[in-house]
Amino acid sequence: MRGGHRTQIPLFLALAGFTAVNLTPVIWGFLTSIKQPVDAFAVPPRFIFAPTFEFHWQVWVEKGFWHFLINSAVISVGTVVTSVSIGTMAAYGLSRLSSTTSRGLLFGLLAMRMFPHILLAIPFFVLARILGLVNTYPAMILALVAINQPFTIWLMRGFFVDVPHELYEAAEIDGCDAWQVFSRVALPVVRPGLWVTALFSLLLAYNEFLFALVLTGPDTKTLPVAIAEYGGEDINYWSLSAAAAIGIMLPIVVFMMALQRHLVRGLALGAVKG
């Protein structure tokens, strides 16, 4: 149905070519992470060199990045669980409201996404200090949930709008209360959508830098902050940043590979009704 073999091969090659170009910065970053700076920044670029895993070793073993990985994991999982639960319930509620009301609410929430985050960092810090939460996991999780919520609600709402109303009506006739309609009827239908929302929430939480810089401390520092600390002055640090950046991609890649089937199906199912 989708075109014969004659078009398939060129199509594949074109797409693969684009993919290759697209990946160049990542690959180049990886090569940089296994070169000494004298090779990494050579003119013209060097493709033959003595590889060194010194920087990867330094990052994970000497500088103790695994500790920050644990922090990142706790914060990411906390954010995903909280944010997806709230998002799901709120989206379900919205999907059953009239569309004018829900549109207004949604737009209000989206305001957070449009405001420069650098300015939100100050209020978040002030708030966290008042609550005594600086350098704790909850502070970071709450901030990330607040930032991420509009997106999850919007995305999840798309999935719920797809659920036929007859299903709800049938359940109500069977005597389900509101909670049961939600948990037994609506939720199972949108399960693939949950994975998609979870992935995007995870990406946001895992890579977030600005709030992490302000709200975390020595006990809760996340990977992006740890990497940014090596962003600067001496070019030895550049190789370190590259090594760390490549390293911290891996958990997400594994997560995506595990979930890929759900992901595409999930997106296909839902977001359409945006």
Partner: peptide
């Protein structure tokens, strides 16, 4: 292809810019 195409989106933004600078 889908997975590979998505990779640039996963790179931590802090370093993504540095990659592009190089």
């Amino acid at each position: 292809l889908n997975l590979l195409l998505f990779l640039p989106n996963i790179v931590t933004p802090v370093v993504a810019a540095l990659f592009l600078r190089w």
